[in-house]
Design a binder for these strands. Structure first.
Lengths: 252, 252
DNA sequence: GCAAAAGTGTTAAGGTTACACCCATGG
DNA sequence: CCATGGGTGTAACCTTAACACTTTTGC
């Protein structure tokens, strides 16, 4: 190894890809973008969107490029970050592929339709609860994903769930301007349980720069009840102390 | 892109390496293992140990293998985890290399000498404070590391510093059996500031499974004062709520 | 007025901070 | 008996959890 590194000898060639777990909130539930594979291996199975890293770009650039292609959005306004790298030797039967997985999320992606610029056979937003990721036994009632994408998606989900605990990224899921109830629904969708209303407002409003108030009120057409104040995302990035999930983070 | 993926066309070939940021506590300070490069590029510069990922192994296996080779230890008893992947196109002038960086730490590594099984030109433990990582301007008083290893090391340091906040991994830095003062010195070395004595003990002892008491006492030879009780690592992995650093985590 | 949704208050419990203080041991 | 390090106690403060309650709107 270092011998090869020092002398510039031959080294094993790899393909390097990025895979994307793109989340959005659609009709109150957390949804992830999946594409259906046309060819073997795993023909017909659903998979995370992704593609090869080009010879002159880094993984982050490749991820941004794929994101634009798959979502059909020129300017993706949300958040993208590296998750982890998956490198099991048998993860792709055709060749030796190392995948740098990324997590992305943004508001309202599901509205414009995912297939706009996608070159996949089919693409759709799946509510994560319909994927049966928590079930230990795959098969019944669950979608079995291609390659190791179920592992990646599980890790991505946990990343998102924990990240909104100690950062302000939840606001990235909300369409601007948003009400505090909208923001709370983001937490409810991602965590599966809503934080206490009163404590939630206090937390958000007492964190400087989490949200900034606007002049407007939520004057919906047929909506009931008192109109809520509208907010935009503020400059703050971290929450301290963290917002706690109603049931707490998983052990381990 | 996905066209290539679907049809099995040609793809850009990459070299994939692992780089290791291996930490230990040596004489009360946090130290990292670096190797001195013998050849260009960056001949004479210090670098993180690492090597190519083999064609039949995953990145974690490669990291464990390198760890054993570089530290000369057959059974590495500490902790190893993936950090992130670094993939800038120009990070290695010779070829297109993607590196999956890992973080490792264990107690007492510096005692046995790092060069035992290493194939590097030279290897030594560097106190992290001597590396000048915090300085924005490299050069004066700081070691300039090869490739993007200063970036990797900065990220690795922040990972370790934050990880001991909410996990019991600090105990992985301590030789068993250890006193609570030993464990507190781990936090002091990693954070650069010691947590309050009384609060620290209460926190550790009130977290079930962080440490387990032993029968023994610390009966040193020429040591002064009251002998401390000795503990071993317990089965717990997470701390909740987290142990807070004296000055708090960095913003951003 | 009534239902619905937004927004405010209140109190008990528990954790943290920042100390001061006491205990055991070697010289 | 004194220095040294180990170990305990405590009061002010802050945050959270879990509610009950009030306000504003549309019908």
């Amino acid at each position: 190894m270092s011998a090869a590194k020092r002398s510039g000898e031959s080294y094993p060639p790899f393909a390097v890809t990025v895979d994307l777990a793109v989340f959005t909130i659609h009709e109150g539930t957390l949804a992830v973008l999946l594409v259906q594979r046309g060819d073997d291996p795993f023909a017909g199975h659903w998979a995370l969107p992704g593609g090869f890293v080009g010879i002159a770009e880094d993984a982050a650039s490749a991820a941004w490029r794929e994101l634009a292609e798959e979502t059909g959005l020129e300017r993706f306004s949300g958040h993208l970050e590296q998750l982890a790298t998956y490198s099991a030797p048998d993860r792709d039967p055709r060749m030796r592929v190392v995948s740098v997985a990324h997590v992305a999320f943004a508001p309202g992606l599901a509205r414009s339709g995912p297939t706009a610029g996608s070159d996949a056979a089919a693409a759709r937003w799946w509510p994560v609860e319909d994927l049966g990721l928590d079930a230990d036994a795959p098969g019944e009632g669950s979608v079995d994903l291609a390659f190791d994408h179920a592992d990646i998606l599980r890790d991505a989900l946990e990343r998102v769930r924990s990240k909104i605990e100690y950062t302000t990224l939840a606001a990235q899921f909300a369409d601007e301007p948003f009400t505090l109830a909208d923001l709370r629904r983001v937490y409810a969708a991602v965590w599966g349980a809503a934080p206490d209303l009163g404590n939630f407002r206090r937390k958000v409003l007492s964190t400087p720069g989490f949200v900034v108030a606007t002049e407007g009120r939520d004057e919906g057409d047929g909506r009931l009840g008192r109109p809520a104040l509208l907010y935009r995302r503020g400059p703050a990035t971290t929450l301290q102390p963290a917002m706690l999930r109603p049931d707490g983070p998983p052990a381990g």
